[in-house]
């Protein structure tokens, strides 16, 4: 609670913050395609450098990014180790029955880099874009899918309702937890079964109230004529600048370079 949560929006005035959310989403898509289609270690390393520059430029403290990286350090380690051990090839050294191969180390490093880039890219997107801008951008970009009968606006409504209610549910779960603690519920008991029961005593009321909320919410939406319209009002805030165009062109070139190498 005292710390900035992973991927939570942090207010700022950098160029990255002021970019149109669509630009950021498109660039992130380019990044994903770029790093997944390239096997060139140096290209990926350059890509990592590019992202680090962007992070620095966004004013997001590197220390907080570094701390959040620690959260996935085991995932990174396991990925690397598995690749290093399970890939066939020229053995570098042997640990019991397992042999670490040269090819394995290279593939492991490449995949490690890919994961790190994906992670940093998405964190940068989330930390510099408000949830509302993000969902407006997504809705705009996905709207053409309506033509092939995919109801995009329903998904974005769901996302929007989630943003609205997650804080409310967190608050409610804390207050139910307090209420059950006042009836002697323990969450640190040595008996696992009694802890489980305590958590059920939070979960069940939370579910019950969520169902009630859902009913109420459906009535409120019906009463205000909800019919699955795209959220034009939210999307009206979207505006392309010259910088946005430049950035997309630049990223397209970077992507193309990756595909050609």
């Amino acid at each position: 609670m005292n710390d900035i949560k992973l991927g939570q929006y942090v207010h700022g005035n950098s160029l990255i913050h002021s970019l149109d959310p669509r630009t950021k989403i498109i660039c992130c898509t380019f990044i994903v395609i770029g790093i997944l289609s390239s096997h060139n270690f140096w290209y990926l390393l350059a890509f990592l450098g590019l992202i680090l520059v962007a992070i620095k430029y966004s004013g997001t403290p590197l220390s907080s990014i570094w701390r959040s990286m620690r959260g996935i350090r085991y995932l990174l380690l396991i990925t690397f180790l598995f690749q290093a051990v399970l890939t066939q090839g020229e053995a570098v050294f042997q640990v019991g029955a397992l042999s670490v191969t040269r090819e394995g180390v290279v593939i492991g490093l490449i995949n490690l880099l890919r994961l790190v880039i994906l992670f940093l890219g998405s964190i940068l997107l989330l930390m510099t874009t408000t949830p509302m801008k993000l969902s407006a951008g997504l809705e705009f970009l996905l709207l053409p899918l309506n033509k092939i009968k995919i109801p995009v606006q329903y998904f974005t409504t769901i996302i929007s309702i989630a943003f609205r209610f997650i804080p409310t549910l967190v608050e409610e779960s804390l207050s139910i937890k307090d209420a059950q603690r006042s009836r002697g519920a323990r969450f640190d008991s040595p008996k696992i079964l009694s802890n489980l029961k305590s958590y059920l005593a939070i979960l069940i009321p939370l579910l019950a109230s969520s169902m009630l909320r859902a009913e109420d919410l459906a009535e409120a939406m019906d009463s205000r004529c909800y019919g699955g319209n795209p959220n034009q009002y939210r999307m009206r805030t979207l505006k392309y600048d010259r910088v946005d165009i430049y950035l997309i062109i630049f990223m397209a070139i970077v992507l193309l370079a990756g595909l050609l190498i």
Binding site: P131, M132, S160, R164, L217, A220
Partner: peptide, 22 residues
């Protein structure tokens, strides 16, 4: 219930919700 009839994550969007549907 004031909590269960607000649909949107921002006040102005909440108020725009009905007119938009019109």
């Amino acid at each position: 219930n004031p909590d269960n009839q607000l649909i949107c994550p921002i006040v102005e969007e909440e108020i725009a919700f009905g007119p938009e549907n019109l």
